[in-house]
Amino acid sequence: MKKLLLYPLLILVLVVGGYFLLRRSSGKWAGVDETVVEKFARAAGHPPHRPLIDTEKGDLLLFCFLVAGILGGFVMGYCFHELFPPTTSSLTSKQPEAEPQLESSRP
């Protein structure tokens, strides 16, 4: 019980502490692709250009995820038996739950 409370509390303290620490910080928190990769690339005359497929336009990214979710869900459902074949062997150590002994309960 103590562990159950301790871990979420620890995570909460870390998240809240980190949040206020980062808010008070004067750092820009730019990614290293900007601070390192782009810096050297620009110096060498090869600045990055816009992505070939630019999804950062309005809700286009959301639409892309919707389409990907629908397609992915359909493919997963269609190939369900191939992905999760009905086999007795399992990768995990968990033993399958015993089937109810219907036959033995009969008179």
């Binding site: 692709d33 990769v37 782009e38 090869h46 600045p47 990055p48 250009h49 990214l61 995820f65």
Partner: peptide, 19 residues
């Protein structure tokens, strides 16, 4: 995956950087 939609900025080389 669906929650993590914010693009990260890191080691991935962006479009156009390499000749």
């Amino acid at each position: 995956i669906f929650v993590c939609v914010l693009p990260a900025s890191a080691m991935h080389l962006s479009e156009g950087i390499l000749p």
